[in-house]
């Protein structure tokens, strides 16, 4: 912990998270604009205009809503993303350089369970309720593969500290020999950030789910928070699988930034390509196909770890 970055770095990290989230959101809407035959430029700036639109809206609430739980949940999405990013080393050190950084990231992604369910519950609307419960059903499917995927880099590096894990990968990134874990991890990131294709909790097919009753700044916090979570999850993939800040010419933080943008961009592209994965389809797949595959991946990694030690 003595090696954590000074607290002044909080400002650039938060600004960076905001800028990357806006860019990723811009990429997503630019692609949509292209599909609709509109100018790509108008899509790129859409997140900013949407922010302005929502900041102008009059706040709205539903009758007999559990406002404490609902407001807490919508307020918690962005802080969750910030905390995840805090554990990601930007080069040699992170804002919070903890020996158990990996377990912390796991613990934080689990908080998304509480947040998303409460978003659906607090609102007192059938739509929200169905959305929140669908999120949980999906979470039951992706969480264990995600946990075992997180374990793979830990076994390979013999450490739970993200800075150490990223430093162990000189020359050979973990993604090269733990591809299954990497994919399962990304799958989980899409899951806890409720982004397509892992967004049945907020899908059109349940009338908008947990997002249906959100307007004004509440909606802004959740929509922005979903992108921030996606970016935060992608940022955590960099020290885990993609060699951290390693790369020529640029300083460590520059490479972390570039890799984060690439991973989150790829996840957005995957989300546009794939249809929404409904929990009734996915739950069993997660347990009987993905989970054994990731466990097998861990087995391979630990055999290699033992052999090379």
């Amino acid at each position: 912990m003595a090696d954590s970055l000074p607290l002044v770095y909080v400002v650039p990290v938060m600004v960076g998270l905001a800028v990357v989230s806006l860019s990723v959101a811009g990429l997503s809407s630019a692609l949509e604009a292209r599909d609709r035959g509109l100018s790509v430029g108008s899509g790129l700036t859409l997140p900013l205009r949407e922010t302005a639109r929502l900041m102008r809206q009059r706040p709205r609430r539903t009758v007999s809503a559990d406002r404490l739980l609902w407001r807490s949940a919508s307020s918690a999405v962005i802080p969750l993303a910030v905390l995840i990013v805090a554990f990601v080393p930007l080069g040699a050190h992170a804002l919070v350089d903890h020996p158990l950084g990996l377990v912390w990231i796991n613990a934080l992604d689990v908080v998304a369970w509480a947040v998303m369910w409460l978003l659906g519950w607090g609102v007192n609307s059938v739509t929200g309720l169905v959305g929140g419960y669908r999120f949980l059903a999906l979470a039951l499917g992706y969480e264990l593969p995600l946990m075992f995927a997180l374990t793979a880099p830990a076994i390979a590096a013999g450490s739970l500290n993200l800075a150490e894990i990223s430093a162990t990968q000189d020359g050979l990134w973990f993604v090269v020999w733990t591809p299954v874990a990497f994919v399962a991890y990304c799958w989980g990131v899409l899951g806890f950030s409720v982004r397509p294709p892992m967004d049945p909790g907020a899908g059109s097919d349940v009338n908008g789910g947990i997002l249906a009753e959100l307007a004004a700044v509440d909606r802004l916090l959740v929509l922005a928070g979903r992108y921030a979570l996606l970016v935060a999850g992608s940022a955590a993939a960099v020290p885990l699988f993609l060699g951290g800040g390693a790369g020529p010419l640029l300083p460590g933080w520059g490479w972390v930034l570039i890799k984060t943008i690439l991973v989150s961009g790829l996840l957005v592209l995957a989300g546009r390509r794939l249809p929404t994965l409904r929990p009734d389809k996915l739950l069993e797949l997660g347990w009987v196909v993905v989970l054994p595959l990731v466990v097998a991946q861990d087995l391979v990694v630990s055999v290699i770890a033992v052999a090379t030690n």
């Binding site: 158990l100 377990v103 912390w104 796991n106 613990a107 689990v110 908080v111 369970w113 509480a114 369910w117 949980l136 979470a139 969480e143």
Partner: peptide, 13 residues
């Protein structure tokens, strides 16, 4: 950390 992780998850269920 593991108490936080496990208990948030268990309580959500």
């Amino acid at each position: 950390v593991i108490v936080i992780l496990m208990m948030v998850m268990e309580m959500a269920v």
